[in-house]
Design a protein around this nucleic acid. Structure first.
Lengths: 343, 343
DNA sequence: GTGGGAGGTGTGAGCGCTAACTTGGCACTA
DNA sequence: TAGTGCCAAGTTAGCGCTCACACCTCCCAC
């Protein structure tokens, strides 16, 4: 009545099956699989042959259970449809793979602290070894800082939180470059189409813009505000086109700049002759806007890679636990910018 | 010398700890956790209180080991930086979460069959219960069809493979709509800026375009070809601008259309007065191109959701294993299209 | 009063693996 | 010859959970 060797049941082979076929103990199979030393070459070959013959796949749950390592990292993203987050995710995934980790993603619906906590908890319940949070909103960042989590965590975005390791872009610097460039061209001042008030990136870019104007002794005009979308840029553009003292606009991202260009075009204000426009991000399409957009390039892929590097470092204990890596953006000159008009 | 109860070691609480604190057996804790019937309300409450007090988290690896269910699905994507794949991924993730699954992603570097096989194997080794492949290239699709995998699998993209369940967009139909609309406006024929030859979506859109022209008895001009990017659209645009019999162009995606618009603008060919342009995808920015782009809308999020639905259905045995779901795209009219010019 | 069927709970085994220890052999030294 | 060491295995004990089953009440029917 032994159910052991009765029948040719179609179940997945396990280590013991490989061991039996190779004429060794299961432990030797394990040794071969994990590249342990002190296995004779011909033994190793027999084991490998058996593995191939049975098409054996180690059971990762069993391994995880005993090693307490899932080889999986979690990524919390906000809106992974946007170019920035999507690129970061891509960079993270590639870096994770080459470091030998899997990547499990979850995106947030809303950006309050509770959602962030839930997302991180969810990933933690799944057994991830560490988490990267792509959440550049102020609320999310402070949520991350408050996070009660025993999981190593890295934030990517902006802000100066000191509690969590972080990788961010020099938004202030980039905004300063853009604004400075416009001032250098003779513009008396530069208007600003900012992003949502609760995004850190918005804040930093706005601050970079403001400080540069102030340092140059230029007037600081009232800020227009959008939600990153081309649509909101268009609407802001209609308002800006109505002002007659505008000669230069710095937009907090390229999509809004696109909408702005559209609105200016419709209003008959020519770019760059009447009004110069600068964006931020350098999405692949920016060079093909009408006119091609001068913008501040940030390397999202690199951002993701750095974040992962930091996390893996922390995980494997070879990293300073409170690093803050900064990526420097770069001004890319195109035709949407010209010297100040003479009025 | 007992290491058992010696010291207050800081290790994660396990089910037994909860059981002891609540004064029940580990099995009862398990019952509460899994919502099994026949647990007295006050017992349940005691267990829940103990769980909260210890901040107990079930170990998913242990559960997976015994249940043989990882609650994880894999997604193989090609270039998740592109708007389409990113949106699908987003749709898949959201749908997966609400169905109670985690999502593990991996992106392909190249699109040959071996890469696809490797990616699927990798996910399978990780223990995913099923896989969604977002890989619309011909090579990838045939690779999927040939895939030696014991994991349930759904493809999203195009093509008529019958071996794997699939969800796709009515590319032929959409291309036909676009082309037909242009012909209806009096254009003698419609030029086509196609995508890469090895993408199924390219092929289908090209075919839809061609068949519509033929059905209308219109001439079928030579196809220009790009790689989906705005840059390639620009280059093709320069070539097209050199032809003088062009009055309408149907582009296989919006990004190439953007590049095309740019090239036409530079060449002094006005859109839509001289040349009408239609895109495909309806990315959020399309409405803000110069001029706003008439295009064929496809709902990527829906695509992802349907794919997941199919996969979960297969997994839980409530689905026809060879379904082929089709999403119908829709022509969105904007200003980049006008009646044929009179020459 | 006794048998039976529920509801409610505990016990033991085992998922497939790795870690730690044990064992056996062989070479090389004292 | 016995002793030391290292290589190349095997043996055993869990990791933390769920499943199958055993068990113990009660309560009700006859």
């Amino acid at each position: 009545m032994g159910t052991d060797s009765a029948g040719t049941e179609q179940r997945q082979p396990v280590m013991a099956d490989v061991a039996k076929l190779a004429g060794v103990s299961h432990q030797t199979v394990s040794r071969v699989l994990n590249g342990a030393p002190h296995v004779r070459p011909d033994t190793r070959d027999r084991v490998l042959a058996a593995i191939r013959e049975l098409d054996y796949r180690p059971n990762s749950a069993a391994r995880t259970l005993v090693t307490r390592r899932s080889q999986t990292l979690g990524v919390v993203s906000f809106d992974s449809t946007l170019y920035g987050p999507a690129s970061m995710l891509d960079g993270i995934e590639r870096a994770a793979r080459s470091a030998g980790y899997f990547v499990s993603v979850t995106s947030l619906r809303s950006l309050d602290g509770r959602s962030v906590q839930e997302a991180v908890d969810r990933l933690r319940d799944q057994g991830v070894e560490g988490v990267v949070v792509i959440a550049p909103q102020t609320s999310a960042v402070s949520a991350v800082a408050r996070l009660s989590s025993s999981v190593p965590l890295v934030a990517v975005g902006s802000g100066n939180q000191t509690r969590v390791p972080m990788v961010s872009v020099g938004n202030r610097f980039g905004a300063g470059e853009a604004t400075g460039h416009l001032l250098d061209l003779g513009h008396r001042t530069v208007h600003h189409l900012a992003g949502p008030a609760n995004w850190l990136e918005s804040k930093d870019r706005e601050e970079g813009w403001r400080l540069t104007l102030q340092a140059a002794g230029a007037a600081v005009p009232a800020v227009e505000r959008g939600d990153w979308s081309a649509r909101s840029g268009y609407q802001a553009g209609l308002r800006i086109a109505g002002l007659d003292d505008v000669t230069a606009v710095f937009c907090a991202n390229d999509h809004m700049a696109l909408g702005l260009l559209r609105a200016l075009h419709e209003a008959g204000r020519s770019v760059p002759e009447e009004i110069s426009v600068v964006g931020f991000d350098d999405i692949p399409e920016a060079a093909y806007f009408t006119p091609p957009l001068t913008t501040v390039r940030q390397d999202f892929g690199e951002l993701g890679r750095k974040a992962l590097e930091l996390l893996v470092g922390e995980l494997e204990g070879v990293a300073p636990a409170h690093a803050h890596v900064q990526i420097t953006p770069e001004l890319v000159l195109r035709r949407s910018v010209g010297p100040a008009g003479h009025r």
